[in-house]
């Protein structure tokens, strides 16, 4: 049986950046947590954290050497998303390509469904 695809996909660039951040924090046991909260211009905002705690409701996956956690409630809003790390002249940031989002605000940190 083929393994189920991860609910949220990390690009290799995003994973490499995260590995640097995790190393800088000095914790190999840190996982990358993606969550969604209410609020922001478009109604929902992404939240990224480095976390040591794994909850029973988390869906975990390992991608390019990074452990990714998504809680079951946030999952409804981000399922099928891809997280990339984009370096532009204006600045570098993690960006989310979310097939569930109808629109997002100018800075890309919030979205509507």
């Amino acid at each position: 049986m083929a393994e189920a695809p991860p609910p949220v996909k990390l690009t290799e660039k995003a994973a490499n950046r995260l590995k640097n951040l995790i190393a800088a924090e000095g914790g190999d046991d840190l996982a990358f947590r993606v969550s969604v909260s209410g609020g922001g211009c478009s109604g929902f905002s992404y939240k990224f954290d480095l976390s040591r705690e794994e909850e029973p409701s988390d869906i975990a996956s390992n991608q390019h050497g990074v452990k990714v956690l998504v809680d079951d409630m946030s999952l409804l809003y981000v399922l099928g998303s891809e997280i990339d790390y984009v370096e532009d002249l204006i600045g570098a940031s993690f960006q989310v390509k979310n097939p569930n989002a109808q629109s997002s605000c100018g800075c890309g940190s919030s979205f509507s469904v």
């Binding site: 609020g39 922001g40 211009c41 478009s42 109604g43 905002s45 605000c105 100018g106 919030s110």
Partner: peptide
């Protein structure tokens, strides 16, 4: 409040 941060419909 025009000086608060993001809220739904702020833009």
């Amino acid at each position: 409040d025009f000086s608060k941060g993001c809220y739904v419909g702020q833009e």
